[in-house]
Write a protein that binds this DNA or RNA. Structure first.
Lengths: 210, 210
DNA sequence: GTCTATAAGTAGATAGAC
DNA sequence: GTCTATCTACTTATAGAC
């Protein structure tokens, strides 16, 4: 049978507790309690709480870098683009504990700072790539300054939408719906689309509102 | 001479430490140390750390509600609008500790949740008011759906710009420049402005880039 | 691999003298 | 109003038995 290893159970449970309670509020004791194992056992698998955080971060990082490795010499369709956004928001939502208390987490685990910033930078670059692809297909028009501002706005929104959304229902922090985020991102780009593309984009984005 | 009361010194120092180190990382001992007073003395003035946070929050809330009490039957000019944004970003920057670890702070001081959400709501309403004023002056055009999405985006950005900006320089967290934030907010509205207004808005917003 | 027991450290908060 | 001393509670982490 599929017997999940304790080590992985610790990671899974930690992630889920971090997401729902906030990483700083989750003690190693709570994690081991939730798993019905002893604190000592937890420390057999991870030499510190920070190690758990770092390993979760590494998984997040890997997913992100994989997702953001967009080939930049290919024409991108609106559908591909919204699908990309969808995946992006799902990934962020899965590791939302990082974003919810970002400054706090990054200041206590300093080694993550640079790596997080690198991901942020890649995100902006990916958005720039997408916009430039759309622009080269005459689906979008924006001057350099507008584009720069837009891509930063997209990065900011990709980061903080889930945290902002969480505010609306701080009571149950289990569920997060990535749909609204995608919708919002599409709306950010909308004004820069060509008229016919706008219509198409509106239809796609509304689907994400469920 | 102007002898500042200990109570106020505690508030000022706490605010400044919260902003630069993050509220969860600031202990009552650190605050009293910084002020060269004893921990006991601090607890003479405030019966708990939470009380300090709540009092700072109350000041933030008062400033915000005052600022957001926009009369909604008056025509608003672009200059007034950007000035409003400027004040808004300054106020947020002054209490940025709230935003940097928002979920964490609100979950530990539950009584602040509703009040914070109320401010958020007022913010969105203020933006809606401004947009509708501009719209009634034919300076702006947007359908209801666009406007709703835009106002939410403005609220999100007003909240998180300073935290996002902090990421770029996590090393020195003393200084925050509200200018970029205003620029970014103006850029969000820009596409919905009438052509001549756009030109004017671009000039204004660029001034904020310093 | 897993447990129990416990050390070591830190945070928030209080008591009582001056 | 301010100080010193101290308490309680909690968190991370380790030691050593099974």
């Amino acid at each position: 049978m599929t017997k999940v290893k304790t080590r992985d159970r610790i990671l899974n449970t930690s992630l889920s507790l971090f997401n729902s309670l906030g990483e700083p509020n989750v003690t190693t004791l709570l994690i081991s309690d939730e798993l019905d194992i002893s604190p000592g056992n937890l420390y057999y698998h991870f030499k510190s709480k920070g190690d758990i955080v770092e390993e979760l971060f590494a998984a997040f990082e890997a997913e992100m870098l994989d997702l953001l490795a967009v080939p930049d010499d290919v024409d991108i369709s609106l559908d591909q683009q919204s699908f990309f956004l969808h995946l992006l928001f799902e990934a962020v939502a899965r590791y939302r504990f990082l974003y919810q208390d970002l400054v706090n987490v990054l200041s206590r685990y300093e080694r993550l700072q640079l790596r997080f910033k690198r991901i942020l930078k890649k995100k902006t670059e990916a958005f720039r790539g997408i916009c430039e692809s759309l622009r080269s297909q005459n689906m979008m028009s924006a001057d350099q300054e507008e584009l720069e501002s837009l891509c930063e706005q997209l990065t900011l929104t990709a980061c903080y939408w889930s945290a902002y959304d969480t505010l609306s229902h701080l009571d149950d922090r289990e569920s997060v719906d990535p749909g609204r985020g995608v919708y919002q991102m599409m709306n950010l780009m909308l004004p820069y689309f060509a008229p016919d593309v706008q219509e198409q984009a509106k239809l796609i984005s509304r689907d994400y509102l469920l």
